[in-house]
Computed example of a mutant assay.
Amino acid sequence: MKFKLITVIFLSLALIESAVAQDNDSSDIAEKEDVYDFVLISTKYQNSFHFLGRDFGENIPLLTADLMYYFNSGIYFNASSIKFLQADLPWQYALSLGYNKDLSETTDINVSYTQFLVNEVSDVTGIQNLGFLQATFGWEWGFLYSNIQGQFLFNEETDYFISSSHSRYFEFDQKLFNKITLSFEPKFTLMAGTSQFYQTGYDLSGQENLELEKLQLLSWEAVLPITFGIGYWDIGFHTRYINPLNLPSFDSSTKRFIFSVQTSYAIPIKKSKRL
């Protein structure tokens, strides 16, 4: 039974996009947001897709490109294009609107909605009108930065998820060659949610006692992103170990490492300086 990949594949970009936005919020943008807007341009190669820790027994690399406008007020718009390196999968696109705000010196929130679009004919049902809503609360406490995120996936059926991440940002005091800033941020994430998304991709006739609407643990993952910063350029290398949990018998996903490389450039747009 061949799994119809495309719905869950391009939802993975919502998670990727969220992580990129969170990382940017804690770097140069946060330092300059009083006087600057930013245009952020990024591209990414990943050696295999994943969604909720699942690769569905497939190994499909992907390329993404993002263009974001980040206002100093914390509002941002993002446009994404996604190309899966498999011939029978169409180009996919995503439009996002979000808001990021520091509530205090140690807490912040991020809320966003993403609408996915496909402009080619596809025999996969349920992919032309997908929405993804997420809200995140972050807290800097002691040694760790922790956040909790609620997510809703609007498709033929509505799924909901909750995840919690814990990380710590490190940056070397001395610049490499007096120009390059080296930083890394190990992170651990645990996710739970419902599993009605399987109904879009699988023929579930004859399957019993699936309880797809039941909230249960879906995955945990550990990530080590290493970033080289040169001025407004960032080049990042991510190593991610993913462990799917509570897999149904028909899902052939396995534990695995996933690797990616990302390049981004921030263009500052000077605004009127606040007094």
Score class of each variant (00 low, 15 high):
Lys2Ile: 14
Leu5Tyr: 04
Ala14Cys: 02
Asn24Cys: 11
Ser26Tyr: 07
Ser27Cys: 10
Asp34Gly: 15
Leu40Val: 09
Ser42Gln: 06
Asn47Glu: 05
His50Thr: 02
Phe51Asp: 00
Arg54Asp: 04
Glu58Lys: 14
Leu62Glu: 06
Asp66Arg: 10
Met68Phe: 05
Tyr69Trp: 08
Tyr70Gln: 15
Asn72Cys: 14
Asn78Lys: 11
Ala79Glu: 10
Ser80Ala: 12
Ser80Met: 03
Ile82Glu: 03
Lys83Ala: 05
Lys83Glu: 13
Phe84Trp: 10
Leu89Gly: 04
Tyr93Leu: 06
Ala94Gly: 12
Leu97Arg: 10
Gly98Trp: 05
Lys101Phe: 08
Thr114His: 05
Phe116Leu: 04
Leu117Asp: 10
Asn119Gln: 15
Asn119Ser: 14
Val121Ile: 14
Ile127Phe: 00
Leu130Asn: 01
Thr136Ala: 01
Trp139Asn: 15
Trp141Phe: 12
Phe143Ser: 13
Ser146Glu: 09
Phe152Asp: 03
Phe154Ser: 07
Phe154Asp: 01
Phe154Tyr: 03
Asn155Ile: 02
Glu156Asn: 15
Glu157Cys: 06
Asp159Gly: 04
Ser163Trp: 07
Arg168Pro: 11
Tyr169Ser: 15
Phe177Ile: 10
Lys179Tyr: 05
Leu182Ser: 02
Ser183Phe: 09
Phe184Cys: 03
Phe188Gln: 10
Thr189Ala: 04
Leu190Asn: 14
Gly193Val: 03
Thr194Gln: 12
Phe197Met: 10
Phe197Tyr: 09
Gln199Arg: 04
Leu210Cys: 03
Glu213Met: 09
Leu215Gly: 04
Gln216Asp: 05
Leu217Arg: 11
Leu218Cys: 13
Leu218Ile: 03
Pro225Arg: 01
Ile226Trp: 03
Ile226Val: 11
Gly236Met: 14
His238Gln: 15
Thr239Trp: 13
Leu245Asp: 04
Phe250Gly: 05
Asp251Tyr: 10
Phe257Asn: 08
Thr263Val: 13
Lys273Glu: 14
